[in-house]
């Protein structure tokens, strides 16, 4: 299988985490060992076995469509890293080339 540091860098970018070169170096062989160990699942996963995503037989749950109290604007913004004029303030969305 051999996961390379480039593979891990690509996955980290998908997961929105900057990993340093030393983190990539350390993580690639670690992940390789883990993935090799878990790959045994394919030995018994025959085509006729249905997949199970959840322990409960889930059905959709509905509630009456009525107004109920929620957070105030002040509460919702209380933990914001930055807020302005009653809204979340975020860094620019578009890149330089945008």
């Amino acid at each position: 299988m051999a996961l390379t540091t480039d593979d891990v860098a690509r996955l980290a970018a998908l997961a929105r985490i900057d990993l340093s070169a030393s983190e990539l170096e350390r993580m690639a062989p670690e992940l390789d060992i883990i993935l090799e160990a878990v790959a045994s699942v394919s030995e018994v996963a025959d085509a006729d076995v249905p997949p199970m995503s959840h322990a409960l037989p889930l059905t959709n749950v509905f509630r009456p469509d009525v107004v109920r109290p929620g957070l105030t604007q002040e509460q919702a913004l209380a933990a914001a890293p930055a807020a302005e004029e009653g809204r979340f303030r975020v860094p620019r969305i578009l890149g330089e080339e945008g």
Partner: peptide, 26 residues
């Protein structure tokens, strides 16, 4: 970070069936 990366890998196209799909069957 390790678990997020493993999960991202297991769900990525090309690997989904072999990893996540098989795990759900198990």
């Amino acid at each position: 970070k390790r678990r997020i990366i493993i999960g991202t890998y297991a769900l990525s196209s090309g690997y989904y069936d072999a990893y996540y799909g098989s795990a759900q069957k198990v």
